[in-house]
Computed example of a mutant assay.
Amino acid sequence: MNIAIIGGSGFVGTQLITLLQQSGELHVKNIDKQNSKTHSGITTIANVLDLEALKTELSGFDVVILLAAEHRDDVTPTSLYYDVNVQGMRNTLAAMDYNGIKRIIFTSSVAVYGLDKPNPSEDSPKDPFNHYGISKWQAEQVLDEWSKGHQDWNINIVRPTVIFGEGNRGNVFNLLSQIANGKFMMIGKGNNQKSMSYVGNIIAFIQFMLMEMKTGYNIYNYVDKPDFTTNDLVFHTGEILGKQIPTTHIPYWLGMLGGYGFDVLSFLTRKKLNISSVRVKKFCAVTKYDSTKAMGSGFVPPYSLEEGLRRMLKAEFGK
């Protein structure tokens, strides 16, 4: 099977390629606008916005795994979310059609549901609250419309919750780093549940879809269970790191006020900071999602959530 991964030089893509290369039956190519530090030998430099380049690079492949996305909270200009996530989808589909490729795995996001929703399943209403979530939902809509005229295609969409693991430098890493360095402060009561996905499990699920879900149009949330509250996450992290975590809780309104202050500072200095109002809001929100469908598909996660946390902490902080 010849597999083209678009946007595989990042955190998830790097580990996915490593996993897929363990099989002698899979030939993998990475197409990305940036070279891969780990898999440079199989990486071709091309931008998802360059349709002609995609047409050339996808020649001879059986499956496309579309990972490319603008996903940070502070992307500027915001039009990049729609250029990369939405137009990138259109270009990918056109290049696939040009080359006769009829299988795609697309990593969307639970951000399509919005914040503080009551445990949404795949069929729940979509109410994204930021440009990232809106653009991911629009990309899904492009794919859905495409499927109506290409019913012989195999389309698999996975909507992961926040992904953490070795090598990640996102919000979870920032939280763990603050705890490890004794700089953590809890905003709000900490009782909000936070659905999470360990990278070792999400790449295993993508591999499962690749090998087992070869027909139809399939959509799955991906969440590792059970859901931790923010207090649970802080407790387990402190226990693993052997750190005494401060019990002081900052009121939500004060945390948001500080977040807005960092927004202004970021604007004035033209620097991207680790603290913002969006990140405070996401930190305090309930982000719990239903993954019954994925867990009933026959897939068995290779790692527990706590083991994934332990593996990340060991790799990043030597604990």
Rank of each mutant, 00 (worst) to 15 (best):
A111E: 09
G114M: 04
L115S: 10
L115W: 09
D116I: 06
D116S: 08
D116A: 07
K117A: 14
P118T: 07
N119M: 13
N119V: 10
S121V: 05
E122I: 12
D127M: 12
D127E: 14
F129K: 15
N130R: 07
G133K: 00
I134L: 13
S135E: 03
Q138L: 13
Q138A: 10
A139I: 01
E140I: 06
V142P: 01
V142M: 01
L143C: 05
E145S: 14
W146M: 06
H150A: 03
D152Y: 03
W153L: 09
V158N: 07
V158E: 08
R159Q: 12
R159M: 11
P160K: 11
G165H: 01
E166F: 05
E166C: 11
G167P: 00
N168I: 02
N168H: 11
N171K: 04
F173A: 04
F173H: 13
L175Q: 02
L176C: 07
S177F: 05
S177Y: 12
S177A: 14
A180K: 04
G182Q: 01
F184P: 01
F184E: 00
K189T: 15
G190T: 00
N191T: 13
Q193D: 13
Q193V: 15
K194A: 06
K194V: 13
K194M: 12
K194R: 15
S195W: 08
M196F: 15
M196T: 07
V199K: 07
N201P: 07
N201L: 09
N201K: 05
I202Y: 11
I202A: 11
F205R: 12
I206K: 13
M209W: 08
